[in-house]
């Protein structure tokens, strides 16, 4: 920074006052420095979830090993049996991976459609109170309607294959995107709105330069929730619409009817991993997009 010497006589040196310092880069200034900080992060991010996981597996062993008899164990096989039969046996695992492919397609297509429709719907609702009042309740209804009730009409128009599954996926993943985005669009500070009002900003400019960027953090947390739900949506869809290529949901219902516990649980495991993967991906994407300027407040 340069100091304007000419004006320094009339007014003191230009520039921030002694007390005004730019925030140090994160990591420095923390007691113990970067190492203690990253150790804390490591503990929070990996060790604690892992402990919970260990407890969970322990509980599983207890239930499966002691609460169930050998004849009942098909309901919840021992974890290592699940791994051995469902995953390490390549002929079984190959089938699961093949099914995973189709579930992934439905998940991604369904999620993409939900994102586009959800954001559009939220933007529309943010434009006028009457639009919000007339549409929002139906978004809620759409979320609560039992998929079972929709099966006949969906299959009549869209058949029993991928299209219907994708629609089920969209129905399930749509709402959190709408509600989060709408919340984000409406939570813009009043002062900022007035700043734009003072300069006679058009609706579109206000949306594009103020509301949408401000809504991004909320929007992304909606995407994240919806990402997990879209996996569930795809699997539920496969449960009801079994024609065409089998997905994880199709396999689940087959294994479940054949009492093949190991393959059932291996498939469930893979489905969960898919859910975690999309969830983590959107968390990462969100940090990439808004992490630089948005820091969530800690309670």
């Amino acid at each position: 920074m340069t100091v304007d010497v000419d004006s320094a006589a009339a007014a003191p040196a230009v520039g921030p006052a002694p007390g005004e310092v730019v925030a140090p880069p994160t990591g420095a200034g923390v007691p113990g420095g970067r190492w203690a900080r990253s150790r804390g992060a490591l503990l929070n991010k990996f060790l604690l979830p892992f402990c919970v996981f260990a407890l969970f597996v322990g509980g599983w062993y207890l239930v499966s090993g002691f609460a169930l008899t050998r004849q009942q164990r098909f309901m919840l096989p021992l974890p290592h049996d699940v791994i051995r039969v469902g995953i390490l046996d390549w002929s079984n695992f190959k089938v699961i991976l093949e099914a995973l492919r189709y579930t992934v397609i439905v998940t991604f297509v369904g999620l993409a459609i939900s994102m586009v429709l959800g954001v559009l719907a939220a933007v529309l609702m943010s434009q006028a109170q009457w639009i919000e009042s007339s549409l929002y309740p139906w978004a809620v209804v759409l979320q609560t309607v039992p998929i079972l009730a929709l099966t006949p009409v969906l299959s009549f128009f869209f058949g029993f294959a991928l299209t219907s599954r994708t629609i089920v996926c969209v129905i399930i993943a749509f709402f959190p995107i709408v509600s989060n985005t709408l919340f984000g669009l409406q939570s813009v500070d009043r002062g900022m709105h007035e700043l734009f009002t003072l300069h006679h900003t058009s609706r579109f400019t206000r949306l594009w330069k103020l509301q949408l960027p401000a809504a991004l953090p909320a929007m992304f947390s909606g995407f994240r929730v919806a990402a997990g739900l879209s996996v569930i949506g795809a699997i539920v869809g496969e449960f009801f619409f079994k024609q065409g290529n089998a997905g994880l949901g199709t396999s689940l219902s087959v294994y479940s009817s054949r009492l093949e516990g190991e393959r059932l649980w291996a498939t469930t495991l893979v489905a969960s991993l898919l859910g975690i993967a999309v969830f983590v991906f959107f968390g990462w994407l969100s940090r990439r997009v808004v992490g630089r300027w948005y820091q969530p407040k800690r309670g």
């Binding site: 920074m1 921030p16 007390g19 005004e20 730019v22 925030a23 630089r292 300027w293």
Partner: peptide, 16 residues
């Protein structure tokens, strides 16, 4: 007097 801070984000600035 903010020359040199053009690329900073509001979050990284003091109140003044």
């Amino acid at each position: 007097g903010l020359t040199g801070f053009e690329k900073h984000l509001p979050m990284e600035l003091s109140g003044g």
